[in-house]
Write a protein that binds this DNA or RNA. Structure first.
Lengths: 229, 229
DNA sequence: TTGTGAAATTTGATATATCACATCTCAGAT
DNA sequence: ATCTGAGATGTGATATATCAAATTTCACAA
């Protein structure tokens, strides 16, 4: 009646990540979506009270943000928001540099059995570009980039990349709703995927760099131009 | 007798950086020089006691290290050393990617008055390579890379770069004592400097990437092969 | 009115106490 | 002998108290 060994899915590690991560995410999201003006000061006690926690996890989260580069600490004075257009622009340059290095590794290291998986994702993306919702496309997008990172077996680079996620989730949806953008994205993803499958490291690196830079431009345009209204 | 407005140099911000930074540096140095085995666990209380501080700055420093990627936190269990050969290798790839992006920006943005400064540093390096101590060469080396970063006016990228400093100061001296290495370094630096002065962005980027990758290899060879004895 | 500086206040930095989860130990059952 | 799990112990996570530097306020003098 029951299987001898019921396999319970281990609960998501992030679910028990603790307050520190929670605070970190909350602040990060707020910063990237522009809720704090550049140069504004963050108050440890105020944040702690607002989130209903003590200052200890807040301090730790601020250190994480500091290392993310989104915030700067003026010793014995305060924590200052360090995110604006120029900063976002540089983050995208960095992302392009890192992610293209990952793509190169992926092309060099991809295992034969991973090739059909990547090809399948590309097929799905082509279909989804034509008919599916922005949400589906965002999901596939992440599956694609995730698979590239995965076959590259790059741990440190991957960490860096996560840390450089400049994209506000709201804006991401908006972008993936624009038909022209969807089309361009598909073409670029296809080029990257084919290069990786063909194990053409130079092409994979170049295609990824071009993609991240161009997509980044679109994003900056959307988020920062909109704010100027 | 006195100038109307005596401009006192603000004392080095880092001198008063506080315990957090102090702990961070101490641990970072220890990790990079291999004092902790990969996978070893770091004990907050033990570190705090050893350094004569409370656990609060230690916790904050560990968060910084965590973001540096040198350490990983297993929730509610402990902090684990996350630095080994493969990790260092990837840090060098990342460094090459970031620093070459900086070199590109430098070539694009260098101001006319900065060109002679850079040229002068190259001249000094040529001379020091032939006649000076490793310490002098290390200093010039830093002046060179620092000047490139400075003319690139890249803030975020610069931050990333600082975070990726894998080089143990001891090993750096050893490397700059080897004649062959000194010669290669000079040639590469010259190529980079000339490309930046000529505002040839593609060459500057390529030359910097090649330099960082090659120098990184030398470093890995020295530090990790030596440990295998 | 304007500039000065001392006092009040804010706020980050640090230390300490407490809690809860993870890991280890070992007696007792099989 | 091996496995199980309850209790003991270790350790990070969190909360709170205290301190000292930075900032702001404001009365007062020029």
């Amino acid at each position: 009646m029951f299987p001898a060994e019921a396999t319970l899915a281990p609960l998501d590690a992030m679910a028990v990540a603790g307050l520190r991560e929670h605070v970190h995410r909350a602040l990060r999201q707020a910063l990237l979506s522009g809720s704090f003006a550049p140069g504004a000061r963050l108050n440890e006690r105020a944040i702690a009270e607002q989130l209903g926690v003590s200052t200890t996890p807040v301090k730790e989260a601020l250190r994480l943000l500091e290392a993310d580069g989104l915030v700067r600490t003026k010793p014995r004075s305060g924590v200052i928001v360090n995110f604006d257009f120029a900063w976002a622009e540089e983050m995208i340059l960095a992302r392009a540099a890192i992610e293209s290095t990952i793509a190169r590794l992926a092309a060099q290291r991809i295992a034969p059995e991973d090739k059909p998986v990547l090809a399948q994702i590309l097929t799905d993306m082509a279909q989804a570009t034509a008919e599916s919702s922005a949400d589906d496309l965002v999901r596939l997008n992440e599956a694609f980039h995730g698979h590239i990172r995965s076959v590259a077996r790059a741990n440190y680079l991957r960490l860096l990349n996560d840390r450089q996620d400049v994209y506000d989730s709201g804006a991401r949806r908006v972008i993936h709703s624009d038909p022209a953008e969807r089309q361009r994205g598909l073409e670029e993803h296809t080029a990257i995927g084919r290069a990786v499958i063909a194990q053409d490291a130079d092409s994979a690196e170049a295609a990824m760099k071009a993609h991240v830079l161009r997509a980044g431009e679109s994003y900056l345009d959307l988020v920062f131009r909109k704010n100027k209204d």
